[in-house]
Measured scan of single mutants.
Amino acid sequence: LETFPLDVLVNTAAEDLPRGVDPSRKENYLSDEDFKAVFGMTRSAFANLPLWKQQNLKKEKGLF
Results as ranks from 00 to 15, higher is better:
1 L>P: 12
48 N>V: 14
27 E>C: 03
3 T>S: 08
22 D>F: 03
39 F>Y: 02
38 V>A: 09
27 E>H: 03
56 N>V: 13
35 F>L: 03
26 K>A: 05
18 P>M: 02
33 E>Y: 12
59 K>R: 12
25 R>D: 04
30 L>F: 02
24 S>D: 14
32 D>C: 07
45 A>Y: 09
11 N>F: 07
18 P>W: 02
21 V>Q: 03
1 L>N: 13
32 D>E: 12
28 N>T: 10
19 R>C: 15
4 F>R: 02
35 F>I: 03
53 K>I: 14
63 L>R: 02
34 D>I: 06
61 K>W: 07
46 F>S: 00
48 N>Q: 13
50 P>W: 01
59 K>C: 09
1 L>H: 15
44 S>I: 14
28 N>F: 09
27 E>R: 00
22 D>N: 07
29 Y>P: 02
3 T>G: 04
44 S>Q: 14
28 N>K: 08
56 N>M: 12
36 K>Q: 15
38 V>C: 12
61 K>S: 09
9 L>N: 02
45 A>C: 10
10 V>L: 13
11 N>S: 07
61 K>P: 01
22 D>I: 04
13 A>T: 10
5 P>K: 05
53 K>A: 13
30 L>D: 00
60 E>Y: 07
14 A>C: 14
26 K>V: 15
7 D>W: 15
10 V>D: 02
2 E>L: 15
62 G>F: 07
19 R>H: 15
13 A>H: 09
63 L>Q: 02
56 N>L: 10
10 V>H: 05
15 E>F: 05
4 F>W: 13
37 A>I: 13
36 K>M: 15
34 D>S: 05
10 V>Q: 13
59 K>S: 10
26 K>L: 15
5 P>F: 04
38 V>I: 09
11 N>Q: 08
59 K>P: 00
20 G>T: 08
20 G>P: 08
1 L>Q: 12
33 E>V: 12
31 S>P: 03
51 L>C: 10
32 D>K: 07
37 A>L: 14
41 M>R: 02
29 Y>V: 02
50 P>Q: 05
23 P>I: 07
49 L>N: 01
37 A>S: 12
31 S>G: 06
58 K>G: 01
12 T>P: 05
46 F>Y: 08
36 K>A: 14
53 K>P: 01
24 S>Y: 14
52 W>V: 11
53 K>D: 14
26 K>F: 03
19 R>Y: 15
5 P>L: 04
40 G>A: 14
38 V>E: 04
9 L>M: 04
50 P>Y: 02
10 V>W: 06
32 D>V: 09
16 D>Q: 05
19 R>N: 15
37 A>G: 09
13 A>P: 14
40 G>Q: 15
7 D>E: 15
39 F>T: 01
3 T>L: 07
26 K>R: 15
50 P>G: 05
4 F>N: 02
13 A>L: 11
50 P>C: 06
6 L>A: 05
23 P>F: 04
52 W>L: 14
45 A>K: 12
26 K>W: 04
57 L>G: 00
3 T>P: 05
51 L>F: 12
54 Q>N: 00
53 K>H: 13
51 L>P: 13
30 L>A: 00
35 F>H: 00
55 Q>L: 13
47 A>R: 13
43 R>E: 02
48 N>H: 13
39 F>Q: 00
44 S>A: 13
56 N>F: 09
2 E>F: 14
23 P>G: 07
17 L>F: 08
60 E>G: 07
48 N>I: 12
37 A>D: 12
17 L>A: 04
2 E>D: 10
22 D>T: 02
10 V>R: 10
26 K>G: 01
28 N>I: 10
4 F>M: 07
13 A>Q: 11
36 K>R: 14
57 L>P: 00
9 L>T: 03
57 L>H: 06
26 K>N: 03
23 P>Y: 08
57 L>Q: 03
15 E>P: 09
1 L>D: 10
18 P>A: 01
55 Q>K: 09
58 K>V: 03
13 A>W: 06
64 F>V: 09
57 L>C: 05
40 G>M: 13
48 N>C: 11
17 L>C: 06
21 V>M: 05
19 R>M: 15
61 K>R: 10
63 L>F: 06
18 P>F: 02
38 V>Y: 05
6 L>K: 04
34 D>R: 01
29 Y>Q: 03
55 Q>P: 00
28 N>V: 11
29 Y>H: 12
3 T>I: 11
41 M>K: 01
7 D>C: 10
4 F>K: 02
34 D>Y: 02
41 M>H: 04
31 S>T: 14
31 S>H: 06
34 D>K: 03
50 P>L: 03
8 V>F: 15
21 V>C: 04
26 K>Q: 03
19 R>A: 15
26 K>E: 03
46 F>N: 00
3 T>V: 13
25 R>T: 07
40 G>P: 00
28 N>E: 14
30 L>P: 01
52 W>E: 13
26 K>P: 05
60 E>Q: 12
27 E>T: 01
43 R>A: 06
16 D>I: 01
34 D>G: 03
55 Q>G: 07
13 A>N: 12
15 E>M: 06
54 Q>M: 05
54 Q>C: 01
55 Q>C: 11
33 E>W: 08
55 Q>R: 11
1 L>K: 13
3 T>K: 09
25 R>I: 06
30 L>N: 01
39 F>H: 00
2 E>V: 15
43 R>S: 06
16 D>E: 12
39 F>R: 00
12 T>I: 09
6 L>R: 04
34 D>T: 07
3 T>W: 12
39 F>N: 00
64 F>I: 10
47 A>M: 12
22 D>R: 03
14 A>M: 09
46 F>D: 00
25 R>L: 08
61 K>M: 10
17 L>M: 06
39 F>K: 00
6 L>S: 03
7 D>A: 14
29 Y>K: 03
22 D>S: 02
43 R>Y: 08
15 E>W: 06
59 K>E: 10
55 Q>E: 13
24 S>V: 07
48 N>T: 14
57 L>R: 04
11 N>H: 11
33 E>L: 11
8 V>T: 07
29 Y>E: 02
34 D>C: 05
60 E>R: 09
3 T>H: 11
28 N>H: 11
41 M>C: 06
55 Q>A: 10
6 L>Y: 15
64 F>Y: 13
44 S>M: 12
33 E>C: 09
1 L>G: 12
35 F>A: 00
13 A>D: 10
37 A>T: 13
12 T>Y: 07
46 F>H: 00
7 D>F: 10
48 N>K: 13
48 N>P: 01
52 W>H: 11
30 L>K: 01
47 A>Y: 12
31 S>D: 07
7 D>M: 09
43 R>G: 03
3 T>A: 07
12 T>D: 05
61 K>E: 05
50 P>D: 08
45 A>P: 01
42 T>V: 11
46 F>A: 00
41 M>D: 00
44 S>R: 13
34 D>Q: 08
1 L>I: 14
50 P>S: 09
18 P>R: 00
